[in-house]
């Protein structure tokens, strides 16, 4: 099963199980089924509860928040994750705040699905990884699915929690197979642990394989699914006694995933380094984009550097 099928199957199952659930987003209706085909078949099966919306990200996230507040859970698809900036006020000052601010009198079961990431040549405003700007928002859970987890199960858990979730998907990942957690490299007594998430996981896994084959450096890949609140204890236990950690993310450097990993690991590891995307917008040129985003070669090189430090 591919990632897109796992998510699509979960959407169908959730719509069937919860007659109040609404799925909405831009161009989500059949025969198109969404820009990345994640909602394919959904509007045919559940005509009344799959809504195509105006191009109005702030408005639709706000509308979905109001519906969720009054008992109708909503899964919102943002066509491109980049557009989430338009909905920032609704997420930060409305959906995420209501439950606590109103003294736990209400709940807001809303899921926002956001395809993020580059490596498709979409250029500066359609290739970003903006999730870090929404991490650390109280009342909001941010997760990033990957092919070594169960993308569909994440949706089920998020809806069951009856609280606002932002789920980061990855444009390139949609067409990749779901491998499951057992396929992640986890050698005993690893020399290095790579901490990463989302679209970078596949590159980290490929780098880990090369490291063990070419350099005999035993490398574990920890794919973090829930980004915020950051699962410190889980990350610490997965790093275990390994003293070298490389954090890898595709977004811009600083104030992000690597910073959060470092915070969790303070005093626990000897060597730490971080790889991120560029500190400028992502260029449209495919080759240039590949040079800038952390790929297999860059991750491998970062691990070798760290290994050499002792």
């Amino acid at each position: 099963m591919r990632v897109v099928e796992s998510i699509n199957r979960a959407l169908h199952d959730l719509m069937e199980a919860d007659l109040q659930l609404v799925v909405m987003g831009e161009d989500v209706l059949d025969p198109y089924g969404g820009a990345f085909k994640v909602t394919k078949g959904l509007s045919t099966a559940y005509q009344d509860r799959v809504w195509t919306t105006p191009i109005s990200e702030g408005g639709i996230v706000g509308m979905a928040t109001g519906m969720a507040l009054k008992g109708r859970p909503v899964i919102v698809e943002l066509m491109f994750g980049d557009f989430i900036a338009l909905a920032a006020d609704q997420i930060i000052n409305h959906a995420a705040k209501f439950r606590w601010m109103y003294n736990d009198q209400v709940e807001v079961p809303i899921i926002i699905r956001a395809p993020m990431g580059g490596r498709r040549g979409y250029g500066p405003t359609h290739s970003q990884s903006l999730e870090k700007h929404f991490c650390g928002v109280p009342g909001l859970t941010v997760s990033a699915t990957h092919e070594y987890a169960d993308p569909g199960a994440l949706l089920h858990r998020a809806l069951a929690s009856r609280s606002p979730h932002l789920i980061i998907e990855n444009k390139v990942m949609y067409s990749r197979p779901v491998f499951g957690a057992a396929a992640l490299p986890r050698p005993p007594d690893a020399d290095i642990v790579i901490l990463t998430y989302g679209g970078c996981v596949e590159h980290a896994v490929a780098a880990a394989k090369k490291l063990v084959e070419e350099e005999e450096i035993a490398t574990t890949v920890v794919a973090v699914e829930q980004l915020s609140p950051f699962p410190c204890e889980d990350v610490l236990s997965q790093v275990g006694r390994c003293s070298r950690v490389v954090a890898v993310e595709e977004g811009s450097p600083g104030w992000g995933f690597a910073s959060e990993c470092a915070r969790a690991l303070i005093g626990r590891v000897r060597h730490f380094s971080a790889l991120a995307g560029p500190d400028h917008p992502i260029p449209s040129s495919r080759e240039w984009e590949d040079d800038l985003l952390p790929g297999v070669d860059a991750i491998q090189a970062a691990c070798i550097d760290l290994f050499k430090k002792g």
């Binding site: 702030g58 408005g59 639709i60 996230v61 706000g62 509308m63 979905a64 928040t65 109001g66 519906m67 969720a68 507040l69 009054k70 008992g71 109708r72 909503v74 006020d89 609704q90 000052n93 409305h94 705040k97 209501f98 601010m101 109103y102 003294n103 009198q105 209400v106």
Partner: peptide, 26 residues
């Protein structure tokens, strides 16, 4: 930032408008 039964208020100008639309639809 008040909440009582079906009354809600929020201190963000305009942000409440789409939320009210959603409440109405629900």
């Amino acid at each position: 930032h008040l909440c009582f039964r079906n009354f809600h208020s929020n201190g963000i100008q305009g942000g409440i408008a789409p939320v009210a639309v959603g409440c109405a639809l629900a």
